[in-house]
Simulated assay, not measured.
Amino acid sequence: MPCRLPVTPALLLALTLLGACAHQPPVPAIPDAPLVLLGEQHDADEHQRLARDAVRRLAVQGRLAALVVEMADAGRDTRGLPPQASEAQVRERLVWNSDGWPWERYGPVVMAAVQAGVPVIGGNQPRAQMRASMQDSRLDQRLDAAALDAQRQAIERGHCGLLPDSQLPAMVRIQIARDLSLAHTATSALRPGQTVLLLAGSGHVRRDLGIPRHLDPALAQQARVVWMQAGGDPVPAGQADATWATPAVPGKDHCAQLREQMGQPARR
């Protein structure tokens, strides 16, 4: 008589992971830590694939406590949804903004956790709170002077030098507030003996500027930062515990796109 194994979410995930690994490079080793911060480049498809595979691997191993994502607001989560929940149900529960975060890109990451019975938790600061954050000078004190200046420079570079100097302090405060929100959300999701996986843009996971600066010191020391590096882009020194190298993303002139969005004339 043939041996028949019970079909469980963990078994289905294991079979799915094995099938995926047969056609694609396997996800690198995932650090054993209570909190793993996975930094991505939003337009690098390989980064979302690796994030999906990391979710699956941790879930199969019984290590995944929760998936915290920058792509949904704090206060939104999939708790209570069954593993069989539809994508529409998941998007509704997370109040997913497909304009900002294309579902075809991030949906597989989210659904991998849901189908494993693991909660997906939004960690970003809600847009309704951003105006108050822009005016909250207390946020400036969350970083020392050097880190605050570095954050300012990073935001200035990220906006291609198109932001007026008068707007930079407010934009820095929003970034700090978002990192604080993600840090608080991840901390609240911790479970003994398991790992919270947090997926956010790589700028958010930097040890000198980002989420680690807003964690309890003991947790910050135990947390591990994984930087997904597209095409050899430089990783700031000392800001990651591991680097996952991926192919380069086809060249795009992000500054040209931003100038168009802001109604700025094209450079000649």
Rank of each mutant, 00 (worst) to 15 (best):
Q151S: 15
Q125Y: 08
G193M: 05
L148G: 10
V120G: 01
S202K: 13
D136R: 11
A150L: 13
P169M: 04
D136A: 10
A200L: 02
P164I: 06
L197R: 06
L190Q: 11
Q167N: 05
P164H: 05
L182C: 09
L190H: 12
Q153V: 12
C160L: 01
L148Q: 11
R142L: 07
L143F: 04
V196A: 08
S133M: 13
A145S: 12
A145L: 07
D144R: 04
R173Y: 06
L139H: 12
A128R: 13
R152K: 12
L180S: 04
T195K: 02
S202M: 05
I176N: 03
G123D: 01
N124A: 14
N124T: 03
V120P: 05
R131A: 15
S137C: 07
A170N: 11
S188D: 05
D179N: 14
I155G: 02
S181A: 14
L180G: 06
T187C: 01
L199P: 00
R178S: 02
G201N: 02
H159A: 09
L197G: 07
P119Y: 06
I155Q: 11
S202H: 13
S202R: 15
D140M: 03
S166T: 14
G158R: 00
G201R: 05
R152C: 06
G203R: 00
Q151P: 01
Q135G: 09
Q129A: 14
V120T: 01
R152S: 15
A128H: 07
G161M: 13
S188L: 07
G117R: 00
R152I: 04
Q141I: 09
D140R: 02
P126I: 14
Q151V: 14
V205N: 01
Q141P: 07
L197S: 08
V118E: 04
D149V: 06
T187S: 12
V118R: 07
Q175L: 02
G203I: 03
R178C: 05
P164K: 09
T187A: 09
V118Y: 04
A183Q: 06
R178I: 10
V172Y: 09
Q115V: 01
C160H: 10
G122M: 01
V120H: 02
L148M: 05
V205S: 04
R178Y: 11
V196H: 08
L180H: 04
Q175R: 10
H204M: 10
V205R: 01
I121V: 15
R178F: 11
A132R: 13
A150H: 03
D140Q: 11
Q125S: 10
A145Y: 08
P164L: 03
R152Q: 15
H184V: 06
T195R: 08
G201M: 01
L198W: 04
H159M: 12
P169I: 06
H204G: 10
L180P: 00
A132T: 08
R138K: 14
M171Y: 08
V196L: 11
L182F: 02
V196P: 10
R142C: 02
L182Y: 08
V205P: 12
A145N: 12
R206W: 00
G161E: 03
R157K: 15
